[in-house]
């Protein structure tokens, strides 16, 4: 058990290191490019050379990488070249805003997806199952940029019920959160409910469920006592995989609604070639991915203790 946990943590650390090396190499291998981006288009070759010299850019690549990694670990993330501001200060409110949106999306998605998935899975092949499958496939296959346009055409332009942009300029507002949350929840819940349905349907055919039925247990009791816990392993894994997606994969939704989140910041950083900010955002993304995977493993082990023994994944 302990060995498995250590292996997990070691694996996570190795993943983060490998990705960090990749990010650093991609963005800072070409030092001329770094100088041009930091000093701007009006800088001269001499200025760039002097800047590179002063900032230790002629040191060996490995040394520069270690220095940068050390800075990241100790919270010295540098200054954004575009915003002229400390990156840590810049990212913090953005992460909070994205956390709010992601949390709201999950709060809507999880109950919806689980209820729909279980309802469809326990009566596989019924009319309700078919109907839910159609909804799930539709919502999964319509990309966010399309559903965002469609929903804002309906709720902003046609009905006039909701605000068209969610800048949160006067603090968090439910009305402003509604549309982006809805877009995210629709596209995520379709997928998760499909996974739940498949998992539930599989458990429903298992011998212990048949035994329970033969014993005359009520459907509600079977679902609560036998199906749910066993069927939840897959949905939990899928839900945990959605968390990193909610952080950086929602760029489209954040940009569409002008939402001041992490995704918009990453998008701005990349269009402005703000390399230190891109590096920091990418590293935050990596940390979130790895952390959510560890949480997912712990949850799965709790749901199904057999998995913890082997350290395997469902």
């Amino acid at each position: 058990m302990l060995k498995a946990a250590l292996l997990k943590l070691g694996g996570a650390a190795a993943t983060m290191l490998a990705v960090s090396l990749l990010i650093f190499a991609l963005l800072e291998f070409n030092v001329e490019g770094v100088a041009a981006k930091v000093l701007g288009q009006f800088s001269t070759a001499d200025q760039r050379h002097a800047w590179l010299q002063a900032n230790g850019y002629f040191d060996p690549f490995v040394l520069r990488y270690l220095r940068w990694l050390g800075g990241f670990v100790t919270g010295r993330w540098g200054t954004s070249t575009y915003y002229h501001a400390d990156i840590l200060q810049l990212i913090r409110p953005r992460l909070a805003a994205s956390g709010l949106l992601g949390g709201a999306a999950l709060a809507v998605t999880i109950p919806t997806a689980l209820i729909l998935g279980v309802a469809a899975g326990v009566r596989e092949g019924s009319g309700l199952d078919r109907l839910l499958s159609v909804f799930a496939i539709l919502s999964t296959s319509v990309p966010e940029f399309a559903s965002a346009v469609f929903l804002s055409a309906l709720f902003v332009f046609k009905l006039g019920w909701l605000p068209g942009v969610s800048t949160l300029s006067s603090g968090p507002s439910l009305r402003e959160l509604a549309l982006p949350t809805l877009v995210l929840a629709i596209s995520a819940s379709g997928y998760i409910s499909r996974m739940t349905r498949a998992s539930v349907a599989e458990v429903m055919t298992s011998p212990y469920v048949r035994t329970a039925r033969l014993k005359g247990a009520s459907m509600a009791r079977i679902i609560r006592g036998h199906v749910l816990r066993n069927a939840l392993v897959t949905p939990v894994t899928v839900i945990m995989l959605q968390i990193p997606w909610l952080l950086s994969g929602v760029i489209v939704v954040e940009v569409f609604f002008a939402y001041p989140g992490f995704g918009t910041l990453l998008y701005q950083a990349s269009i402005n070639s703000d390399i230190y900010l891109i590096e920091a955002c990418a590293m935050v993304g990596v940390v979130v991915v790895v952390a959510s995977q560890i949480v997912s493993d712990i949850l799965c082990a709790w749901l199904n203790p057999r998995l913890a023994m082997t350290g395997g994944r469902p």
């Binding site: 346009v149 006039g160 605000p163 942009v165 800048t167 940009v255 569409f256």
Partner: peptide, 19 residues
Amino acid sequence: YIDLGTDVATHVAALAAGQ
């Protein structure tokens, strides 16, 4: 002055909603 990004469709949505 409010920066709503580069997509003018987003700007129009904000105008439609009176923001």
